[in-house]
């Protein structure tokens, strides 16, 4: 490349830069993010909520759009994807800020796709009279001896309505195997 050609390219590049700067100025005049650099602006775009984390904050009566989206994702999934999805659901239960509504949602999902891997997270809920019902909502339909063992273990730790409900779950798991239908 000769000097003239090089000079021409330099001028062209300078021209493009000038035009770009002018364009940026024009854009910046009506942009609340004026003077923000490109990286910061991209950060703004990246602030879409992670539904798996946001759902842990859901409240009864609040917008449940994110939970509904996750439910569709879970129900539509191929069974091969259930273990990974189950981990994400269990992370909702493990969230320090998990609300009662979020716990309710997570247990509903586990009732459909949960496995024995959910038992360690559900067993403490099962043994607490305040959360026993919602834990059973998940556990009653999860197959496996691990679930049966957790249910039996909780019998001695509950009383009153919570224990009655637990006894009902144990009886239902036994009866539904007799009635057929792929059960428990």
């Amino acid at each position: 490349m000769n000097e003239r050609a090089t000079a021409g390219l330099t001028l062209a590049a300078a021209g493009i830069a000038a035009v770009a700067a002018q364009a940026q100025d024009k854009r910046a005049s009506s942009d609340p993010l004026k003077n923000a650099d490109v990286d910061k602006r991209m950060d703004e775009f990246k602030k879409s909520p992670d539904p798996w984390k946001e759902v842990a904050k859901m409240e009864f009566g609040g917008d449940r759009t994110l939970a509904s989206g996750l439910q569709t994702l879970i129900f539509d999934a191929d069974p091969a994807q259930y273990p990974a999805l189950e981990k994400k659901v269990l992370a909702i239960l493990a969230d320090a800020g998990c609300t009662a509504a979020a716990r309710d949602f997570a247990c509903r999902m586990l009732s459909v796709i949960g496995s024995a891997a959910a038992v360690p997270a559900l067993a403490p809920l099962l043994e607490n009279a305040k959360t026993s019902d919602v834990a059973r909502y998940a556990l009653e339909n999860i197959p496996g001896a691990e679930v049966d063992a957790a249910l039996q273990a909780a019998l001695s730790k509950l009383s009153g309505p919570a224990r009655d409900g637990l006894a009902g779950t144990i009886a239902a798991r036994a009866a539904f195997k007799i009635l057929g239908g792929g059960a428990a």
């Binding site: 909502y137 409900g165 006894a167 009902g168 779950t169």
Partner: peptide, 9 residues
């Protein structure tokens, strides 16, 4: 089916 809330069975 759905699990019943206690004390119902």
């Amino acid at each position: 089916s759905r699990a019943y809330r206690g004390p119902w069975a």
